[in-house]
Amino acid sequence: MRVSVDQDKCVASGQCVMAATEVFDQRDEDGMVVLLNDNPPAEQADDVRQAAAVCPALAITIEE
């Protein structure tokens, strides 16, 4: 799995962080998404898919 984020689309809702805390974080100054791991282990795959599904801006892309 390869994960990428489009910071231009991000609306800083934090849904991704709540769904997959080990893969996503937010910048302190503006809340924009920070990708911590673009190739997460298999045991985090479901959380990452959930994060992409709940992102209101559709800023997360997953390549399986």
Rank of each mutant, 00 (worst) to 15 (best):
L35K: 07
D8C: 10
G31Q: 00
A42Q: 15
A59T: 04
K9Q: 12
D6M: 10
E63W: 06
V23G: 00
A12E: 07
A57G: 14
A52P: 11
D25A: 09
D47A: 04
C10S: 05
D6N: 10
V17C: 02
C16G: 07
D8G: 14
V11E: 09
P41L: 13
D38W: 01
V17I: 03
Q15A: 03
G14A: 01
A19V: 01
D28Q: 08
P41A: 06
M1T: 10
R49E: 15
D38I: 03
D8F: 13
Q15I: 00
D25T: 02
E64G: 07
G31E: 01
D30G: 02
E29M: 04
E64Q: 13
D6I: 07
D8N: 15
E22S: 07
T21N: 11
R27I: 09
M32E: 15
Q44G: 00
E43H: 14
A20W: 08
K9P: 05
A52M: 10
V54L: 08
Q7Y: 05
S4V: 06
M18I: 01
V3N: 00
A20C: 12
A45Y: 15
E64S: 08
V3W: 01
I60E: 03
N37W: 15
N39E: 13
S4N: 03
A52V: 10
Q50F: 07
Q44N: 12
Q15V: 00
T61L: 09
R2N: 06
Q15D: 03
V23F: 01
